[in-house]
Amino acid sequence: MSRKWLLPITIMCFIAGFFLTFQLKVMAGISTVNPISERNTNLITIINDLEEEIKNQEELIGETRDNLDKLQEEQIKGRLQELQDSLKTAKILAGLTPVAGKGIVITVDDNTEGLKANPDDDPNKYIIHYSQLLNIVSELKVGGAEAISINGQRLITTSEIRCVGNLILINTTRIAPPFEISAIGSPRLLAEIVTASELAIMKLSNYPVDLKEVEELIIPAYKGDLQFKYAQTKGEN
């Protein structure tokens, strides 16, 4: 009887010991990184604060641009029509106005199912990279897209799509999966060109991919800055 008693306890001790060492190893790992992780926590707080402030600034910019537009329209009403029209066209071309029209909406997401099924595999093979978004956007432009946004970020001339670590940034704004790419243009043409290349490759790698043609979609205005320090109009110094 007393022998039987020994066996389960031994096994229990083994298991507990195993977990303890495992846990200790993790704790040791954390404690050696501790000063860094503390620093990271501070950095994350700073980032969150900056992002909050930037959001408010962009709202203010959007509002002020609207007010300025309205004021201009009122003041110019019935006069200087030509000037007014060219200003309006320039604003639309620059991406400063929300726009609407026919087009397509592409949704792509990290392949979380795939990663779950292969937890030991390199996670980079399952997450969406900025280059995939850049490729889709470039193809949409070839297909004659007239306006594009990703997760509500309007792409203007100077918009970049890049990454810091594995965060994806557009207009220096962090965007997270799932990514919704909206493009105004000929739905058939746009769908044809993207499904033929980047989306096809992504589908092969089992990323969740969705594409729908939309009768009327709305793409928001660019709310960032237009600050130029280096470029000057030629012949005007």
Partner: peptide, 26 residues
């Protein structure tokens, strides 16, 4: 953000700060 390495977080802070500055100029 918690997944990111320190240098990437620092790069984010730098980029966002300069964006904030440009926005305030705007």
């Amino acid at each position: 953000l918690t997944m990111q390495r320190t240098e990437n977080l620092i790069a984010m802070v730098r980029d966002l700060s300069s964006k904030r500055q440009n926005l305030s100029f705007e």
